[in-house]
Design a protein around this nucleic acid. Sequence first.
RNA 1: GCUGGAAUCGUCUAGUGGCAAUGACAAGAGACUGUAAAUCUCUCGCCUUCGGGCUUCGUAGGUUCGAGUCCUACUUCCAGCA
Length: 389
Amino acid sequence: MKVKYQLIHKDKKTGARYGKLIFTTEDGEAYEYETPMFMPVGTQATVKTLSPEQVKACNPGIILANTYHLWLRPTPEIVEQAGGLHQFMNWSGPILTDSGGYQVFSLARNKKKDITEEGVHFKSEIDGRKLFLTPEKSIEIQNKLDSDIAMSFDECPPASADYNYLKNSVERTLRWAKRGKAVHKNKNQNLFGIVQGGAYEDLRKWSAVETVKLGFDGYAVGGVANDDECKDDMYKAIEYSCPYLPEDKVRYLMGVGEPVDLIEGIKRGIDIFDCVSPTRLARHGNALISGIRKTEKGEPKEKRLNLKNACFKDDFTPVEETCDCYTCKNYTKAYIHHLMRCGEAFGATLLSIHNIRFLIRLTEKMREAIKEDRYKEFIEEFYKDDGRD
RNA sequence: GCUGGAAUCGUCUAGUGGCAAUGACAAGAGACUGUAAAUCUCUCGCCUUCGGGCUUCGUAGGUUCGAGUCCUACUUCCAGCA
């Protein structure tokens, strides 16, 4: 399915974008999804602990899967034999595959010599086998997976990387993007480019301008979800990148998805997000709830409930009274507390449903606000929300 | 009744002369951003001005500079024999 982004409305005060991603099949059938959008992550061709039906009930647009993981297991050939990723995992909606670029950061970190011009050397985490991933290989795998959106293979350096390292990294990512694009053969699949450059204005601008010159179906801002990243650097990265991206292409902020990040990203012109946080937090017993608290650094952050805490053992109210998710409509905190204490998988499922729905519901509210030119007021309300429904 | 063996933090457990004492579980809390994460970290005798102080290994004595560890008696439990 080829994708088109249609910018429908820009919030008058903030410039936040409301739009549509329109996927069109070869037969001319069109599927529309509104942006801003939050994409749940299903790295290994499954959103952890959820069935496709449960994911679908959260009303997402696109979901993610990962090239690196599916390359190792079950292999792209198996997915291809299954009839592609959609068939294989029984997901009829759009799928975006990450390129494995993030794994360059998370798996090959501190081993600079393993990142070469040609590609990246990995050691398989499964069987210790030596692996070599190149831009061409990543695209070839994604072609076989038959996702709707493939990502360019990029290097995702840590935020702590110095200017020179980042400069070289941006150059290399551009060359990799070009090489990937040259071998991209799947006519039904869209290819997105990725802007890198840390928190440096000149690098981000240069990366954005040059990536756009190569010509992609959409653009991502990458390298902002690394562990030593501070919020300011993330905001800078977006602000230094977005002005150089075309208005008529979708903008994807990679790996980011705390509620505050959605608010701030959208304000700066981002359309789509993905993040493991809602599902990971869920498996670790945490529920996202409305309301704002301050972190140790003094940064605003969403409130959460740790359902494993003893205080919930006899709390027979839902996670959030006002939430419309399956979990909140049918189960109590006491029950989820019990499941998490026992290590029952259903606890993780219930919290994953709530957390994913929480973020998607937030995007739904933001879309309405943008359409009505009251996104600025929405943000003000968001930050002063006391967390009580 | 006799002969062995055993009693250690809520539970199980390590520990054979230098020990506030091992590990697991349980419990209490925290972290988590393109998933090496249903994971990881911290606390878990009492007190603390974080230097340390105090009281602990069934009970009571004893040996020793020093005892959970060795000796004696007792209590309880387990196994085998009657």
